[in-house]
Computed example of a mutant assay.
Amino acid sequence: MKWNWQQPGWPDFTYDAGSLAEREKRFLLQSGDFLGAVRHIGDDDRDLLKIELLRDEALKTSEIEGEILDRASVQASLLHQFGLAGPSARIEAAERGIAQMMVELYRSFAAPLGEKALFDWHRMLLAGNRTIEVVGGYRTHAEAMQVVSGSTLKPTIHFEAPPSRSVAREMKVFVKWFNDTAPDGRHPLPGLIRAGIVHLHLVSIHPFEDGNGRIARALSEKALAQGLRQPSLLALAYTIERKRRAYYLALERANKGNEISAWLTYFADVLLEAQANTIRRVEFYIAKACFHNRLRDRLNERQAKVIARLFREGVNGFEGGLSAENYISITRTSRATATRDLRDLVEKGALRRSGTLRHTRYALNIPNIER
């Protein structure tokens, strides 16, 4: 089988731009909705929202690759790097590194792309890793770089990247293309198309021993931010991780040819969904502030602890809904006390109740969750 990089015309991808025009318009319209929502948040809360969005993207882009990071450590590192908190000595290298990359992406989105930036990102991502031969540089090993699954005796090869000796040449073309297609470049491209191509192009070259997917997603966000002239804070990894199998299937279908309309349509839909998720997160954040203002000093210590836990679960809420057993587990209280507390929270309008008897469940009483 010939892969995309082995075919005539590589890396000049072809696609139907007209089929994506409506999606490009929707993306720009929703960007206005995002800005409008953020304007309702004060400066201090805006900083905290930025930290939450970047933290969750850092966690999810790592989780897509099977790496589970510590949420509190990533947040602490982000707070420190934005000057919102002091340093913490207990943060591991992996958490500090992904946080550094997210901050660098946020701050330097407008800068042209260069190999130094890519190498710096790679060093941040692989900070503390002792198994990778080359950190902060392109791969050099002679054996083929393959994406495989299944047993070692009978593996399934999903993709094979260009040989290491070709990577430096391929990446020079890639970097030049990225800068030429920027909004102020020689051949500007619409945002969704550019974000989709940069992702597929980078993972097709697979220039690094590890971290290619995370860097590709970061470059897609950089491309979108350049088009919007501001950081997108897009929930891209958050959205992809929820439908990870579809993401890998779309990539696998796209790496066998250079006509990529289907890939661009798929990725544009992911970006639109990610943008909608970001807007929903902002609205949830605003609703959260209103919720706390309305119920300030009206909750006992147990109730406040459970409400804080529910908010930490985010827009999608507590999986399966909050039960009396969950309440007892979180607060370590008696069933009778839990029943009184939950009834009181419903009466105060803090929670909604659904179901009966042992199927009774509770959820935050916030209209945005209904959507």
Rank of each mutant, 00 (worst) to 15 (best):
residue 2 K to S: 14
residue 3 W to K: 08
residue 9 G to A: 01
residue 12 D to E: 11
residue 13 F to K: 05
residue 13 F to N: 05
residue 15 Y to I: 07
residue 19 S to F: 06
residue 19 S to L: 11
residue 32 G to R: 11
residue 32 G to N: 13
residue 35 L to T: 12
residue 35 L to Q: 15
residue 38 V to S: 12
residue 40 H to T: 13
residue 41 I to N: 03
residue 43 D to S: 12
residue 48 L to C: 08
residue 49 L to C: 07
residue 53 L to E: 03
residue 54 L to C: 09
residue 59 L to S: 02
residue 63 E to F: 01
residue 71 R to Q: 11
residue 72 A to D: 12
residue 73 S to N: 10
residue 74 V to G: 04
residue 74 V to Q: 02
residue 76 A to T: 02
residue 83 G to W: 03
residue 89 A to V: 10
residue 91 I to H: 01
residue 92 E to R: 09
residue 101 M to G: 05
residue 101 M to E: 00
residue 106 Y to M: 05
residue 108 S to N: 12
residue 110 A to N: 11
residue 113 L to H: 03
residue 113 L to P: 05
residue 115 E to L: 07
residue 115 E to M: 04
residue 119 F to R: 09
residue 121 W to T: 04
residue 121 W to A: 13
residue 122 H to V: 01
residue 129 N to L: 03
residue 133 E to S: 15
residue 133 E to A: 15
residue 135 V to L: 06
residue 136 G to M: 07
residue 140 T to R: 13
residue 141 H to G: 12
residue 145 M to W: 05
residue 147 V to A: 14
residue 147 V to F: 03
residue 152 T to M: 12
residue 153 L to H: 08
residue 154 K to Y: 10
residue 157 I to R: 05
residue 159 F to Q: 06
residue 161 A to S: 11
residue 161 A to V: 09
residue 164 S to H: 00
residue 170 E to S: 08
residue 170 E to A: 08
residue 171 M to D: 06
residue 171 M to F: 02
residue 174 F to H: 04
residue 175 V to C: 06
residue 175 V to S: 02
residue 179 N to D: 12
residue 181 T to N: 05
residue 184 D to R: 07
residue 187 H to P: 02
residue 189 L to P: 04
residue 192 L to W: 07
residue 193 I to R: 02
residue 193 I to Y: 01
residue 194 R to C: 10
residue 198 V to L: 10
residue 205 I to Q: 00
residue 205 I to R: 02
residue 211 G to P: 02
residue 216 A to Y: 03
residue 216 A to I: 10
residue 228 L to W: 03
residue 230 Q to R: 14
residue 231 P to T: 10
residue 231 P to F: 11
residue 231 P to M: 08
residue 231 P to V: 10
residue 236 L to N: 03
residue 236 L to Q: 03
residue 237 A to K: 02
residue 237 A to F: 05
residue 238 Y to R: 11
residue 240 I to Y: 01
residue 243 K to N: 15
residue 249 L to Y: 09
residue 252 E to W: 01
residue 256 K to F: 03
residue 257 G to P: 00
residue 261 S to R: 04
residue 264 L to D: 11
residue 271 L to K: 00
residue 282 V to A: 10
residue 284 F to C: 06
residue 284 F to K: 00
residue 285 Y to F: 15
residue 286 I to W: 03
residue 290 C to Q: 11
residue 291 F to C: 07
residue 292 H to G: 01
residue 294 R to I: 04
residue 295 L to P: 00
residue 297 D to S: 04
residue 299 L to D: 05
residue 299 L to E: 04
residue 303 Q to F: 04
residue 307 I to Y: 04
residue 309 R to I: 13
residue 309 R to N: 10
residue 309 R to P: 00
residue 312 R to C: 13
residue 313 E to H: 13
residue 313 E to I: 09
residue 313 E to S: 11
residue 313 E to N: 14
residue 319 E to A: 15
residue 321 G to L: 08
residue 328 I to W: 00
residue 329 S to M: 11
residue 334 S to G: 13
residue 336 A to V: 15
residue 336 A to E: 13
residue 337 T to I: 06
residue 339 T to G: 05
residue 348 K to L: 13
residue 349 G to A: 07
residue 357 L to C: 06
residue 358 R to P: 12
residue 363 A to R: 14
residue 364 L to T: 08
residue 365 N to M: 08
residue 366 I to Q: 12
